[in-house]
Structures are given as structure tokens and as C-alpha cells.
């Protein structure tokens, strides 16, 4: 069930993530980060390499449990869930991921890749593939449904990856440099696609990017440095 526009989806409160480096020293990957994300909003996360962008995405996606602070989804604290299985169940039902590389399963066709996310949520294979076809059609890639990833272009693969991320109607979509491997035209298309998802499906979308060309598409941008949010600005959405 999608929340209404503007309803808080994700809240990170004073989140810090620390770990021991190879030389035994303490590394502050994320330091006292507080962030809110609401339904229908697209957030851009900028910053130099190693500044903590991906770690922030991991904390938001419940892939990394904070050393300090809390992660809440729609007001419910999520980072205290017992066990990896519970976290995975939560991710499956509420969070979608898109990466720089599409990370499609090479021996599955496009439609099977999308259906996979539903099948592991217990949807029967036939029904899952039917719904996956609908998603591929919505992203204008249905005509390539029977192709394996090796037979698709980079842009087509990324569209299939977006379709897979949407398979279980997530309230939060996390994208880690989704346009890095694409040319500017295809990169722009993917960013517009993510914005469309935020607007039409009322999902909260967070995009880690180095690419300034799509800056006009974000509702809000944060800039990170040394594990901290050092700047936050609102931009005019298209």
C-alpha cells in the first residue's frame, strides 16, 4: 500500500556506522547522519568517492546496521528487527534497489529477471511473469522480454533492473549510480524513469550519483563528505 505524497517513508536519526579498518584503526564510514525521505520525493546524494554515499544507502536499505542511531520506516524502527531473515523479508516487501551495473541474473530472460523478485515473495511463477510483462511494458521494454541480459543494450538492461526493483511495489527505491555506465541520453532517460516512479507510484527515491547532468530532476540534494552531510539544498523539480 503506497503512502500519500509527502508522508514520511524513511527516517535516519543520528546514524553512525563505524568499523575496524585493515590496520585495526576505527573508520567512521557514516557520522551522525539525520535524513528524512517522503513519499513521491526524489533525493540526490552527491559527494566524492569514499565520502559515505554507498554506506548511507546500505543503512537506508537495511544492509548495514548502524553502530549508533535509528532507522525508521513509516515510523517503525526497522534496524532492530531480529535476524537477517526478518531484514530480508522487510527489504523484499518495501525496498527496491537499482545499481550502477544492472546485476541481472545472466541465465534468466528479462521477464524472468523481473518475475524472480515476485517468485521469491511467494507469487506463482506464471502470475509473476504476467505481472512482470506489465512492468516491462510500462518501462517500454516489453518487446525485449524474452532476451537474456547478454542480448540487451546497457540502457535496456538498466530498464529491466528498474522493473525488477519495482516488482514488489516498494515504498522506497534506492539507486546507486544507476547512470554511471550509460551515455548521457540513456542516463537521462533512466533518471526521468526514476522521477516518474516517484511521482506516479509515490515511492520515495534516493539516488547516489556523481552525474550533475540530471540535477534538475531532483527535488532535494544532499552533499556528503567524510561520512557527514555537509550541504542540503532543494532544487526545482521538472
Amino acid at each position: 500500500m503506497m503512502p500519500g505524497a509527502g508522508v514520511p517513508v524513511l527516517s535516519l536519526d543520528a546514524v553512525s556506522i563505524r568499523y575496524r579498518g585493515g590496520d585495526g584503526s576505527l573508520v567512521n564510514a557514516l557520522e551522525d547522519v539525520t535524513l528524512r525521505l517522503v513519499a513521491g520525493e526524489m533525493l540526490g546524494i552527491f559527494g566524492p568517492s569514499g565520502c559515505g554515499k554507498t554506506t548511507l544507502l546500505m543503512a537506508a536499505g537495511l544492509l548495514e546496521i548502524p553502530t549508533e542511531g535509528t532507522v525508521r520506516f513509516s515510523g517503525t524502527q526497522a534496524d532492530t528487527m531480529a535476524g537477517e531473515a526478518a531484514l530480508r523479508d522487510f527489504r523484499r516487501r518495501h525496498i527496491g534497489f537499482v545499481f550502477q551495473k544492472p546485476n541481472l541474473v545472466p541465465f534468466l530472460t528479462a521477464v524472468e529477471n523481473v518475475a524472480l523478485a515476485m517468485v521469491i515473495d511467494g507469487v506463482p511463477a506464471g502470475e509473476a511473469e504476467q505481472r512482470a510483462m506489465g512492468l516491462l511494458a510500462a518501462l517500454d521494454i516489453a518487446h525485449r522480454a524474452g532476451n537474456r541480459p547478454a542480448g540487451l543494450s546497457g540502457g535496456e538492461q538498466q530498464r529491466v533492473a528498474v522493473a525488477r526493483a519495482l516488482a514488489n511495489d516498494p515504498v522506497l527505491l534506492l539507486a546507486d549510480e544507476p547512470t554511471a555506465a550509460l551515455d548521457s541520453r540513456r542516463g537521462r532517460q533512466v533518471m526521468e524513469l526514476l522521477l516518474g516512479i516517484a511521482r506516479r507510484r509515490l515511492a520515495a527515491v534516493a539516488v547516489v550519483t556523481h552525474d550533475p547532468r540530471s540535477i534538475d530532476l531532483f527535488d532535494r540534494m544532499i552533499e556528503m563528505e567524510d561520512g557527514r552531510i555537509v550541504n542540503e539544498s532543494r532544487a526545482a523539480a521538472a
Binding site: R88, D89, N103, I120, N168
Partner: peptide, 16 residues
């Protein structure tokens, strides 16, 4: 292994 990590990321249970 990469696909298995991917499966876990999108929520596949160990049993699957």
C-alpha cells in the same frame, strides 16, 4: 556468488 548476493539483497530467503 554475485547473483546469490543479489538474491539476498532483493530479499530471497536462504531456503530459496
Amino acid at each position: 556468488l554475485h547473483e546469490i548476493a543479489m538474491l539476498k539483497l532483493i530479499g530471497a530467503r536462504d531456503g530459496f
